[in-house]
């Protein structure tokens, strides 16, 4: 069981917040777009092509001018949960992948509870295992099963994965991963952004990713590729590694800020409940 019942109860009271308007199908979510909903919103002057059925004839009787009635259109929204499931996500206690799966399940449950269509995708290098978006609370179980079944393997090829992840509709995408791609994380996020998706980045790191290396004569082996480097770690090397780590984290944060992406960094030491209920709420993803 990915999420405890008590946590699910808390999630019932949350809802995902989109920061910009999307073009979903008509659904339970009241959109800011004016259209064919039931709740009256405003009037505007008739224009050629407007539907005659929305002409307010009472106003025409009093003012002898044509106005049409505007209604708030109700729509549903696609929420895409992208989970990096490469081999590097195996690290951490709990592992980054387990943490990401729980987080994705929580956010998916919130979205489904609010009537959004929720899909999920696990990125194993260039291979993508996807669960198509579905609406309704009944979709929570398949979503949880899909996430539970995922295991960490494959390379980190975020850009290739983004190419294969092609949502048919715009929506909100929550990308959860460590972003440790040798080719860089930027192309991946830009592709999502250019696909018209609202991107929310949860930068998930394990304590091992952040801790300075142990000094000594090391043969550092890449968990994904098996490549190794022979490194003599002394005090200067430790300082250099810490500097590079901090520069990397800062580069992710500034990149997201520059391109209008919401960004939250978390470590696996932080409980998922606290992350969702406190930090994601503070970041504006959930209310």
């Amino acid at each position: 069981m990915l999420l405890e019942p008590a946590f699910l109860e808390k999630l019932e009271r949350l809802r995902l917040v989109a920061r910009r308007r999307t073009r979903g199908t008509v659904g339970e979510r009241r959109s800011r777009a004016l259209g064919r909903g039931l709740e009256f919103s405003d009037h505007r002057a008739y224009q050629v092509g407007d539907d005659w059925r929305y002409v307010d004839w009472n106003i025409y009787a009093r003012l002898d001018r044509l106005f049409v009635k505007l209604f708030e259109e109700e729509e549903d929204r696609d929420v895409h949960l992208l989970v990096d499931a490469s081999a590097s996500m195996r690290f951490g206690q709990p592992s980054k992948l387990d943490y990401a799966k729980r987080l994705a399940a929580a956010l998916g449950y919130v979205a489904l509870a609010n009537g959004d269509r929720v899909g999920a995708a696990a990125l194993h290098g260039s291979a993508v295992r996807a669960l198509p978006p579905r609406r309704g609370r009944t979709h929570a179980r398949p979503l949880f099963r899909f996430l539970e079944a995922e295991e960490a393997y494959g390379l980190t090829e975020l850009e290739e994965a983004a190419k294969r992840f092609a949502p048919r509709r715009r929506g909100l995408v929550v990308a959860v991963g460590d972003l440790l791609d040798p080719r860089g994380f930027q192309p991946f996020l830009l592709r999502l952004r250019h696909a018209g998706l609202e991107v929310f980045v949860v930068h998930l790191l394990a304590e091992e990713d952040l801790a300075p290396p142990t000094p000594g004569e090391l043969r550092v082996v890449d968990a994904e590729t098996g490549e190794s480097l022979e490194v003599t770690v002394d005090a200067r090397m430790v300082r250099e590694f810490v500097a590079q780590r901090d520069a990397f984290l800062e580069s992710v944060r500034t990149f997201c800020a520059r391109h209008g992406m919401a960004y939250v960094r978390a470590t696996t030491a932080l409980p998922v409940e606290e992350l969702v209920l406190r930090y994601l709420r503070r970041a504006g993803l959930v209310t």
Partner: peptide, 27 residues
Amino acid sequence: RRVPVVVPSLVLWRRSLREEARRRPLR
């Protein structure tokens, strides 16, 4: 003589080594 250490990625290691090599070419 070298202790094998498995890490999630060599990204930061490569960058650190590159910078070290630039600063200390005789390393």
